[in-house]
């Protein structure tokens, strides 16, 4: 289903459908559950489906670019923190020595994490960086 402005806030209007990364619903995530160890930091992570739902809401509220960002974010949910940090670092000026470094990261995103939107985004950056001479060594 597609969500709209009327479905927002999702935590109030669709509480049953909102679940953490390990499938726990909002009502399962209580202080006692944290104390007894059954809730961990993993349970407090957003899921791709929640981000997709928020993308629907943003689009229906007239914010298509915010929606697009939520979709790129949905792609990144499964990407481990160190890979995210590596990709970010590589996208900063002068870090990638050539276009190939970025293309390889794009391939990892696509093949390993099924992050197609992110892969396309990094490939686009590779083209732009090449055109603008960003692969030159920075001291």
């Amino acid at each position: 289903m597609s969500f709209g402005v009327k479905d927002y806030p999702l935590a109030e209007k669709h509480a049953a459908q909102i679940k953490g990364a390990r499938g726990k619903s909002l009502s399962d995530i209580t202080l006692d559950a944290v104390i007894d160890g059954s809730v961990t930091i993993e349970d407090l992570r957003i899921t791709p489906s929640a981000l997709e739902a928020q993308a629907d809401v943003a689009r229906s509220a007239g914010r298509p670019r915010l929606a697009d960002n939520f979709l790129r974010a949905a792609d990144l949910v499964a990407v481990p923190q160190d890979v995210i940090m590596r990709a970010y670092e590589l996208l900063r000026p002068g870090r990638a020595k050539s276009k190939d470094d970025l293309l390889e990261m794009a391939k990892t995103m696509r093949d390993t994490y099924k992050a197609e939107r992110i892969a396309l985004f990094i490939e686009e950056a590779a083209d732009v960086y090449e055109a603008r001479g960003l692969f030159t060594k920075r001291y």
Binding site: R72, V77, Y88, P93, V128
Partner: peptide, 23 residues
């Protein structure tokens, strides 16, 4: 200026997505 700030529009946009991916 962007490059001296040690970023590009793509690196910053990636960061925006990274933040949202962690809620």
């Amino acid at each position: 200026t962007f490059v001296d700030g040690d970023d590009t529009p793509w690196s910053k946009a990636f960061l925006a997505a990274a933040y949202a991916s962690r809620g």
